[in-house]
């Protein structure tokens, strides 16, 4: 099995977006980029024939986890304003 075009594109996307998550400094923006990274990972899992993992990644990586991060950020900000 060699690396196909679609797989190569998916891999590159995962690499680029992972880097983007790290270099984004604003936590709020970072959550959004992280969601995109999760989606790209889901696509990657799908093109290497792991649809089960892909399904979990879609929900956990691109929806549930960013939602929790957002809620946590909202909470932390409320506390920061108090201080």
């Amino acid at each position: 099995m060699t690396v196909g075009v679609v797989q190569a594109v998916a891999m590159t996307l995962v690499g680029v977006l992972a880097l983007a998550v790290v270099v984004t400094r604003n936590p709020l923006h970072q959550v959004m980029v992280f969601g995109l990274f999760g989606s790209s990972l889901a696509v990657f899992f799908l093109v290497v024939q792991a649809p089960d993992v892909s399904l979990s990644e879609i929900v956990v990586g691109s929806a549930a986890l960013p939602a929790m991060f957002l809620l946590t950020l909202a909470k932390v900000r409320n506390r920061e304003r108090r201080g």
Partner: peptide
């Protein structure tokens, strides 16, 4: 569907359960 067809097609209890959180969101 993902829960009910877990033993047939990609998916299963964990994946389906996680999808079922989406309606709450």
């Amino acid at each position: 569907y993902t829960v009910a067809h877990g033993q047939l097609t990609p998916g299963g209890g964990f994946q389906g359960g996680a999808v079922l959180v989406a309606p709450a969101l």
